[in-house]
Design a protein around this nucleic acid. Structure first.
Lengths: 228, 228
DNA sequence: CCCATAATAGGAACACGTTCTACGTCTGGA
DNA sequence: TCCAGACGTAGAACGTGTTCCTATTATGGG
């Protein structure tokens, strides 16, 4: 159904079977020129323009407004080029989500996270992220729904997002900004469960099944429960 | 975007703001002629034929194979009629998922659930459900992805599925087959968190990010953690 | 500098979800 | 019984994701 022969800088190209434990190590490989280092300057620029256009359109009009022809036009590339860089609309949006998460991760890594217990710190971070996403409902709707809709062909990109998410949570659990912390496998397990809950809560909010306060409440309860 | 003026038997037509607590009461309203009681016999029959066709196509070829023209043809109704009953492909698939869940719920309600602790019983039920779904990968992929992709217009159907899921878990927590059990708000909270994890695990499996054993393991860990 | 090759532009073509139109058919109340 | 209006059929038409084709332009090795 998809040909998936992307010859160019693909945001994420880890083998699909990376174990979740690698989250820790990979997350600690610091910020330095991440994946998008490959390819010529022009290619990196095109990739950036495309993701920027995606971001703008999603922010304005949500999932439906991110139309491939519109993205191509706004990024000033041909439709075929867009598809060369991102083999489907879902790949495109999940890659955009990935970029957002990397950014968030970088910002969170800079300073100490406030809070006395792991639960406090995790909730601080999650609520901050959630508030940020709820401030851009259309954008969040677009990125979340793409993430949810993704099928197996997007496994790599989704995996990258999952890694970022887990890394953010484990980092919050420990609180310190230091890199090579002693993050145990148990921590990763806890972080994954918290990530699961967060995703579901986000989905409930996106689909209008729960309000923002309800979402926050549900997350609070769940995190307290899991990190008790 | 969607006109959503379904004049006929809609599987789920609760107001969208039913609180999650109603899960308990509604779940206890026993099996007797559920929603699909409205409408003429011919209408009920058409609705059933459509859902059957959806089920078959999904089972054979997954989400992509559930094409509206194909469903209409196999159900022996006109395309317009299909859209009269289900205003979109997503509504259709989520309704099919709902029917599956109702069936599962009915089956589980019949007999006592084995296991000494709530954790054991919940895991028994979840693993049973999961194994069932993994036995029909295409079907599961179709239903799960539709559920995930749904937007606000499908809130009612999604809500119904969430209620079934929560009801199944709370029922398993208590173990007894009795109906009006003393299910507390806390139980519902626990059940929701477990449901969240289950959904995420299912999604990871559907997208090929985790294998069946990994999925089972993750669920086991999470449930032990939550019901410890 | 020149050529082979890859990358891009531009846009037609196709597939499938969705909507719309025109017409036949069933049903329930006067 | 008969009629009005809802329901159903058949299929055209439209929008958007995706694929494909051809000509043009960069790029990098000799």
């Amino acid at each position: 159904m998809l040909r998936c022969a992307i010859p160019v800088t693909q945001g994420t190209s880890e083998p699909a079977d990376v174990a979740w434990e690698t989250v820790v190590t990979i997350a600690n490989s610091s910020t330095e020129e991440r994946q998008d280092s490959a390819g010529s300057a022009a290619q990196r620029d095109r990739r950036k323009r495309i993701l920027d256009a995606t971001y703008e359109l999603a922010k304005e009009g949500g999932f439906d407004a991110v139309q491939m022809r519109a993205v191509a036009e706004q990024a000033d590339v041909a439709l075929g080029t867009l598809y060369r860089y991102f083999p489907s609309k879902i790949h495109l949006l999940v890659s955009a989500l990935d970029r957002e998460f990397e950014d968030a991760q970088d910002k969170l890594k800079v300073r100490e996270i406030p809070g006395d217990t792991p639960g406090d710190r995790v909730l601080y971070v999650l609520k901050r992220l959630t508030r940020g996403m709820q401030g851009d409902p259309k954008l969040t709707e677009a990125l979340t729904r793409a993430f949810m809709f993704a099928d197996a062909s997007v496994a790599n990109e989704i995996h990258a997002v999952g890694m970022s998410m887990t890394s953010i949570v484990t980092h919050a659990m420990h609180g310190t900004a230091a890199d090579s912390e002693a993050i145990t496998d148990d921590d990763v397990v806890l972080a994954r469960v918290i990530g699961d809950v967060w995703l579901s809560a986000l989905m409930a909010w996106v689909t209008g099944r729960s309000t923002a306060p309800e979402t926050a409440q549900h997350m609070e309860t769940a995190v307290r429960l899991i990190l008790r």
